[in-house]
Design a binder for these strands. Structure first.
Lengths: 201, 201
DNA sequence: ACGATATCTGTACAGTGTAAAGATCACTCT
DNA sequence: AGAGTGATCTTTACACTGTACAGATATCGT
């Protein structure tokens, strides 16, 4: 009943989390389409088909790794928020900007993880009414709430801003990543957003 | 010296464009990671390794197909512009909105092509100074010019809008496609953009 | 007409995902 | 404690993949 708790178990330890961690790291290094289940199993000292007792598919393993990557992105965003707070940079605008920066930095520093997360492997199960908002979403809404509290953003305009901001930041990250926009585009975008939000009376 | 011009050539016709068209169609139907070079060759009545006289790699073929997909997207945008013009909808805003719609419609109607185009297969060769702007870019800038001419967009704000608008539309398309945003998010985004641009004095 | 060259075939190999059946260990129940 | 149960892993095997290499074949320039 206990799964993947502590390190020593019996045959291997616990393969499930080892597979997940290994897959995540391998994707991080060489990209999702170049990781082989067999190679991963070999590195873990386990037989080629051992993984099938923990994941129905290679795709299922990669999907799990993709969700872990999404989580890593959220971690990094929270870390960026913590850092900017410690730095003492006052404004809610600074925090807001730091969020955007950390998002595109993640995309550029970990392109394989970013593509794994948003490249079709982690599509949501389709009929999902009870979809809890993703961590990225809640982090974003909190930052927007701060802007509203600071009087920098109209309440009426706030709700519309959610989708706009997330889409813009995500879009610029992927477009830079795929070479469709130069790297400087990110800062220009942040300028536009700040100008656009901060200028509201 | 002539490559891939007219239909009848000698052994097969011209394999190069047949391979490209076949790859594009197969990706369209089942997704890039499920097309096999061998299966494609078999369907074309050709030996397994025939493709290697036209493309150095399977990846090279897929990359070529990806660029074709990008072109298809641009085609669809121009078609959307033509339609909205014929409809007689007056404003530059309507044209602008039609562009956005066609972009996310393409992503949702042809998810596999969209992912092929922006999923890492078509990254730009890195050191590209003389990068001519993509068709999507020029189409977008033209639409923005129209908005400026119509007096709906400040010239000062226009330049910043380019990156913002493209990023936002591309972002919302991929986020919807990956299930991170509901389909209605696209229209809400367009509202935000229209509000944001049109409201400028 | 005749080489030169581009195009395609045949064969082969290493590597892949995964299905099926058997082995091995931890744990539970009496 | 001892037997059985179920989870975990191994072995073996199969169909399939991308692609290298050595020839065959048809086309074109001269």
């Amino acid at each position: 009943m206990s799964k993947a708790m502590s390190k020593p178990a019996y045959h291997h330890g616990d393969l499930e989390s080892a597979l997940l961690a290994g897959a995540l790291e391998r994707v991080r290094q060489v990209g999702a389409e170049k990781v082989s289940l067999r190679g991963l199993a070999a590195d873990l000292g386990v037989s080629p088909s051992a993984a099938y007792h923990h994941f129905p598919d290679k795709d299922a393993l990669l999907r799990a790794a993709g969700f872990a990557a999404i989580d890593k992105l959220a971690d990094q965003q929270e870390l960026a928020l913590a850092i900017i707070s410690a730095t003492g940079a006052d404004g809610a605008v600074a925090r807001f900007r730091a969020l955007g920066r950390s998002y595109v930095d993640f995309a550029l520093n970990e392109p394989h993880l970013f593509r794994l997360a948003f490249g079709g492997h982690c599509a949501i199960p389709e009929g999902s009414e009870n979809r809890e908002p993703s961590r990225a979403w809640t982090i974003l809404t909190c930052a927007l709430d701060e802007l509203v509290e600071a009087g920098l953003l109209t309440t009426e305009f706030r709700e519309k801003s959610e989708i706009l901001v997330w889409s813009a930041v995500h879009g610029v990250a992927t477009l830079i990543l795929e070479g469709q926009l130069p790297a400087e585009a990110a800062d220009e975008l942040f300028d536009s957003l700040a100008h656009m939000l901060g200028v509201r009376r």
